[in-house]
């Protein structure tokens, strides 16, 4: 499961551009639309703040 570390996320929205499933929303901070995320993990590398992580459980 993909997670946003809200203490790190700056809200820049870079990740939004690179999600092929339109599963990310940035509005001051990033939110994952969990039901749309196919866990391809493409977004992780595009986060300049290292705020996106894969975890076993837990929702953002």
């Amino acid at each position: 499961m993909l997670n946003v570390d809200r203490t790190r996320c700056v809200g820049c929205g870079l990740c939004v551009y690179f999600c092929p499933s339109d599963a990310l929303r940035a509005w001051g901070v990033c939110r994952i639309v969990t039901e749309d995320c196919n866990e391809c993990l493409a977004c992780i590398d595009y986060c300049p703040a290292d705020a996106l992580h894969q975890s076993e459980a837990g929702r953002s």
């Binding site: 809200g11 929205g13 703040a49």
Partner: peptide, 11 residues
């Protein structure tokens, strides 16, 4: 279309 907030380490 898109909103970006620039701050902290990515300002």
């Amino acid at each position: 279309l898109h909103v970006s907030y620039w701050q902290k380490d990515w300002p």
